[in-house]
Structures are given as structure tokens and as C-alpha cells.
Write a protein that binds this DNA or RNA. Structure first.
Lengths: 171, 171
DNA sequence: GAGCAATATTTCAAATGTCAAAGGTTTACG
DNA sequence: CGTAAACCTTTGACATTTGAAATATTGCTC
């Protein structure tokens, strides 16, 4: 990081400017998208082969795992970035498998809260450990310092995107 | 976690090591995933509102646009990172809308080649320009140098992942 | 307390996505 | 030739996804 402060003009920037200069964002986006797809597919494959689970199910369970008191479906929807209607079906299937249960709190009958069952917790614990290992494996060739830097810089991208949405959203 | 090179010990690494040290990859992955989802949703929304198109359709057309002679469905499947069966339906719908056409080459009747129609080309040209602009907007707050750096470093991640897949794939 | 806006979830139709199996075609080999 | 292996696409069963409309419940206002 930190090239060319004030005063001097950096050659690299000039080169970029003349070569392309405009489509850097598009190029970055395409690479982010393909890399994310690649990793997703790999995780999906392993979740399926080793646990008979799907990635959205894993994501949903991950959210419930860190909120042992359960989450309202709307909250689940926000945290998993999945639409409401989608959460309904997802939770339904997980309930069928006995991994999640639904209950309506006394105070407000509009609300449905989903929780992990004992069985769900146990399964998730195993899956989460495997999942973390898969990611370490996949990124094994990447310098740890780069990983930290990527995390920060992608955070910057995320913030920028959040500030330029047409609809409404945040982090 | 294999830190510490020879001689000097970097403070930052120590801090990382004591704080977490292990889950950096997972943390990065979660951020990549959420950021990608965020951008995807925004692009999807705008494609729908402004052009009545979907993101997978746009992706598919983008591939055909840069291969004016058309692509075999298998090639389309690889480039869009979508399964064969999915490409079939995608192309079918685009054909219904008159944006894409299918033809079987003389030499090999197993093959189906998809091409953009005139109408498809014209629509894609307009969409692509808008699409690029949206990305520039969304990433407007990110330093251009960071964008280039992210592109490179994510490339490194992609390579690493490709080298550690359980199934088979490449770039 | 009747009516209505705000909340929260579900339902619905259409599209996308995976995987596995089935269908044709071509190629290679004996 | 004739058959088996290899190749390419489609089909089928399910799961996920979105967006919009429908339901249900609560809370507020007059």
C-alpha cells in the first residue's frame, strides 16, 4: 500500500489511465463474482457429499447457532440476505429434518421464532468445523497478510456500495 | 499458523495471532460473500427495473456478445459457471424473447450453438453500458489503486482455490 | 372501540440452480 | 461393419431465489 504521496505522479497510475482507466470496477466485479461462485460451488459440493446439506441451510443454521434464543424469521431474512418468502421454505425444510423448530412467542402472534434443535446444534458444530477447514485449505496459498488486507479493502468496497444503493439497505 | 519469517517478528502478526489468528480465511470469505450478494442484488434490481432482464440472462448474453460466432451450450455452461441443464432453460427463455437463437452446425449434430440475434445485440449494448456505470457508481468511494490491488489479490485467492478443489476445475 | 396504517409471515408464479439419469451422435477400435 | 466408449444436450426431481400479492396481527388514532 501507500504509493506516491503528494507531489510526485505515480507511473502506474498513468499507465492505468491510458490502458484502461475506466473499467477497473467492472473487472474487479467480474473477478469477485467468479471467485465467489467458485468457492460457493466447492463448499456446496462438500456440504452435500459429506453432510447431505445445502449451503443456504448451512448459512441459516449458522445464524441460529450464534443466537441460541432463536431469531424471528424477518431477522433471519436480513442476516442471511435472503427474502422473507425464501426463509419460510428454508425453515420448513429444516424443521422437517428435525434440525430447527418454530414457535410463536406469547406477546405477538405475528411473529415466528426459529431455533436450532439439539440435533441441529450438534450437526452444525461438526459442519462448521469442517467448513472452516475447507476455507483454510482453499486459501492455503494466499499470504496471511493479504487475507487480512483483502478483508479490510473489501470492507471498503462494501461501505461504498452501501452508500450508493438505489433502494434501501445497510450493513 | 506458520507465521514469523526469519529474523524480525512483525507486531501486526502477533496481534492477529493473539486476537484470532485462525479464522481469517473464514472472516474473509463471509465478507466476500456478503459483499457479492449485496452488489448482485443491486444489479439485479436495476436490470429488472430498467430493462426487464435478469442477471443470469445478462451474464449469458455477455458471453455471447464477445463471441459473435456463437458458443456451444457446453462452453456457455463453463463460462457462466452454470450447469448444463440450467443453460438449456436459460437459452430457451432468451430464444422465446427473440434475443438469442439456437442452431445445430452441419458437422456435428450433437452440438447446439447459441448466438445473439440482432435484437439481442442491441439490447445488450445498452445494458452493458448501464451495467458498467452502475459498478462505477457503487464503487465510487473506493480508491482506484485499491481497486486494482483488490483485482490482483483476489486473483491470488482464485488461483489458490483452483489448486485445492476436490472435484475438477480450473480457470 | 372502529378503522387504518404498520408489522410479520406466508403464499404464489416464474426463474434459477444442482445433480443424476436419459437421449441422441460421433468416434474409435477390433 | 458393429459395438462400445466418449461426447453433448435435454429432461426430471428438487431446492433455492426473487418480487408481488395475500394473510394475519398489532398498535394507533379519533
Amino acid at each position: 500500500m501507500a504509493e506516491s504521496e503528494s507531489g510526485t505522479v505515480d507511473l502506474e497510475i498513468i499507465v492505468q489511465g491510458t490502458q484502461e482507466g475506466k473499467k477497473q470496477e467492472l473487472r474487479l466485479w467480474l473477478r469477485m463474482l467468479s471467485t465467489t461462485k467458485l468457492i460457493s460451488q466447492e463448499i456446496r459440493r462438500r456440504l452435500r457429499n459429506e453432510f447431505g446439506a445445502t449451503l443456504p441451510q448451512f448459512d441459516l443454521m449458522a445464524q441460529l447457532y450464534r443466537e441460541r434464543d432463536g431469531l424471528r424469521l424477518g431477522e433471519l431474512s436480513k442476516r442471511t440476505m435472503v427474502t422473507n418468502g425464501n426463509v419460510t421454505g428454508l425453515v420448513e425444510r429444516l424443521e422437517t429434518d428435525g434440525l430447527v423448530l418454530r414457535e410463536t412467542p406469547d406477546g405477538d402472534r405475528r411473529v415466528t421464532v426459529a431455533k436450532l434443535t439439539k440435533k441441529g446444534e450438534e450437526l452444525f458444530t461438526v459442519m462448521a468445523a469442517a467448513h472452516e477447514g475447507w476455507l483454510r485449505d482453499m486459501m492455503a496459498d494466499v499470504d496471511p497478510a493479504i487475507i487480512v488486507e483483502l478483508w479490510k479493502d473489501i470492507g471498503g468496497v462494501k461501505s461504498s456500495v452501501n452508500n450508493h444503493l438505489s433502494g434501501a439497505a445497510f450493513d
